[in-house]
């Protein structure tokens, strides 16, 4: 019976939810994301409370440049879409295409992360907007940095899954793993949309 878990043939419609373990993972992960929502909500709350507390340091509309952030947003949104394709191919039991689309997702993730690191570097060096500059800067780097750390963790996770399953197909054991990784990726994406709005747009306008 245990071997059935690792077979790649005759997969059901939704291999990620075909087993009790899969259903548990699926549901547990949704709840986990519920907790993550509270985590980010708390960080957003802190940020909103401190967004005008710039002390002597620069204010939001002095440092933020929307062009780069807009590109980052597009990159991350696209990566969410590509991960949907990957899941589509997983359900069709087409591991090669799944790996391909996951690869694209990861690549986009790296691009995003690279931009973010550049962005931070730029703020620190051109605006003297460091982590300890003001309460606002601490809140900004903590909120956006937490998101960045989530992206980095997601990348390691997906790459790990890709390597581990490079030589075997989709099966009942790894399908839930791929699926929740993609859920996580969507979640990160949604959080970014809020960051884009609350941190950057409101920072530039308000």
């Amino acid at each position: 019976m245990a071997d059935d878990m690792l077979k790649s043939t005759n997969l059901p419609q939704n291999p990620e939810r075909a087993t009790l373990e899969g259903r548990n993972k699926f549901m547990g992960f949704w709840f986990f994301l519920g907790g993550e929502t509270v985590l980010f909500a708390s960080l957003f709350g802190t940020f909103l409370a401190l967004r005008n507390s710039t002390a002597e340091g620069p204010a939001a509309n002095e440092v933020f440049g929307l062009e780069l952030v807009f590109i980052m947003t597009m990159v991350l949104l696209t990566s969410s879409l590509t991960s949907v394709y990957a899941m589509y191919h997983m359900k069709n039991n087409d591991p090669k295409k799944m790996q391909l689309w996951l690869g694209i997702t990861v690549a986009l993730g790296f691009v995003f992360l690279g931009f973010e690191i550049y962005e931070f570097y730029h703020y620190v060096n051109h605006y003297e907007f460091g982590y300890s500059t003001s309460a606002f800067s601490s809140a900004f780097y903590t909120l956006v940095g937490f998101h960045g750390a989530h992206v980095a963790f997601g990348l390691v996770w997906i790459i790990g899954l890709m390597i581990r399953n490079a030589k075997r197909g989709v099966n009942l054991y790894n399908a839930p793993k791929f699926y929740i990784a993609s859920l996580y990726w969507h979640f990160i994406d949604v959080v970014w949309v809020f960051i884009f709005t609350v941190v950057y747009l409101m920072g530039k306008v308000g």
């Binding site: 709350g45 710039t54 982590y131 003001s134 800067s137 601490s138």
Partner: peptide
């Protein structure tokens, strides 16, 4: 070196109480 709760750097100690 963050400044969340340091009033002289614009921080606000009440945030901790809320969280």
């Amino acid at each position: 070196g963050a400044n969340f709760f340091d009033p002289s750097m614009g921080g606000n100690v009440i945030i901790w109480e809320h969280l």
